[in-house]
Simulated scan of single mutants.
Amino acid sequence: MTKPVVALTKGRVEKQFIQFLEERGFDVAPLLDKGRKLQVETEQFFAFFAKGIDVATYVEHGIADLGIVGEDILLEVQPDVFDLLPLPFGQCRFAVAGEPDSNKALGKQKIATKYPNITTDYFRKQGKSVDIVKLEGSVELAPLLGLADDIVDIVETGNTLKENGLVVKEEMFSISARCIANRNSLKLKKAILYPFIEAFRVEEVIK
């Protein structure tokens, strides 16, 4: 195949990435006019669209050469992919949040989250042991209904927390969208991938 295959996270990251590509002179018309198609070919690459966690899986197994995915997926799932570089969109932060007047004094703290691995690792580094309640949906409900003392979640604007009477208690760390690559593709398709990757580089955001 003479073009890179790129897996894109559907939704907000997809829209931000398309804008990012357009600013760099890429042909994005097929991406904008795709309708309900899950696979699209442009002048410069083939693209398909999937959930973030599935993007990482497709890249890991070599179905896609590159992937655009939130850093939260990489930290939580730790797929066997090459984390190439950060991208200048999708910025948000992990935080511990809860009801403003709650202060767990006795017993082990109970934390509700979609990210048990990230949460466990964060508190372990602080020398704390917590009980994790794994949720898939709106974690903001957990402290309100007494399922957990606090939550760990991604915060962008903080509006959802505020509307549900919760506050950020502790800032954890910032994340962004990332460009990831299949390890074998980087070796076998170097000639077609590296010019593509170089177009993504934004010096001020590279860590």
Rank of each mutant, 00 (worst) to 15 (best):
109 Q>Y: 08
79 P>S: 00
72 D>H: 02
136 E>V: 14
106 L>Q: 13
139 V>T: 14
93 R>D: 08
128 K>F: 03
136 E>L: 14
167 V>R: 11
157 T>P: 02
165 G>F: 07
165 G>M: 10
94 F>M: 00
83 D>M: 10
168 V>L: 10
163 E>P: 06
114 K>V: 08
69 V>P: 03
172 M>S: 07
77 V>G: 01
112 A>L: 02
60 E>S: 09
113 T>R: 03
181 A>Y: 04
81 V>A: 05
103 N>G: 10
126 Q>T: 13
161 L>A: 05
106 L>E: 12
108 K>G: 12
140 E>Y: 13
68 I>K: 10
100 P>V: 09
113 T>C: 04
60 E>H: 08
96 V>N: 06
64 A>H: 08
168 V>W: 09
136 E>P: 07
104 K>V: 14
139 V>S: 04
158 G>H: 07
184 N>L: 15
84 L>W: 02
64 A>R: 06
167 V>F: 09
110 K>F: 09
131 D>K: 15
147 L>P: 03
139 V>W: 02
92 C>K: 15
153 D>A: 07
64 A>L: 10
64 A>N: 10
128 K>C: 03
66 L>W: 05
94 F>I: 01
61 H>I: 15
140 E>P: 07
96 V>M: 11
72 D>N: 02
99 E>P: 04
173 F>K: 06
112 A>Q: 04
99 E>W: 07
114 K>G: 11
117 N>A: 00
94 F>N: 00
77 V>E: 02
149 D>V: 08
114 K>D: 02
110 K>G: 11
108 K>C: 12
65 D>A: 06
148 A>H: 02
109 Q>L: 15
94 F>A: 00
169 K>N: 07
166 L>P: 03
167 V>E: 12
127 G>I: 10
120 T>I: 09
146 G>N: 05
113 T>D: 03
116 P>A: 05
145 L>C: 12
136 E>N: 15
92 C>R: 14
151 I>P: 07
132 I>P: 01
59 V>Y: 07
165 G>T: 11
154 I>F: 06
113 T>S: 02
177 A>Y: 07
93 R>M: 12
115 Y>M: 03
150 D>H: 13
101 D>W: 11
84 L>Q: 01
154 I>Y: 03
183 R>H: 10
106 L>V: 14
182 N>M: 11
141 L>T: 13
184 N>S: 15
138 S>L: 14
153 D>Y: 05
139 V>P: 01
150 D>M: 14
100 P>A: 03
171 E>H: 14
110 K>M: 11
73 I>K: 00
171 E>F: 14
77 V>Y: 00
61 H>Q: 13
74 L>F: 01
100 P>R: 04
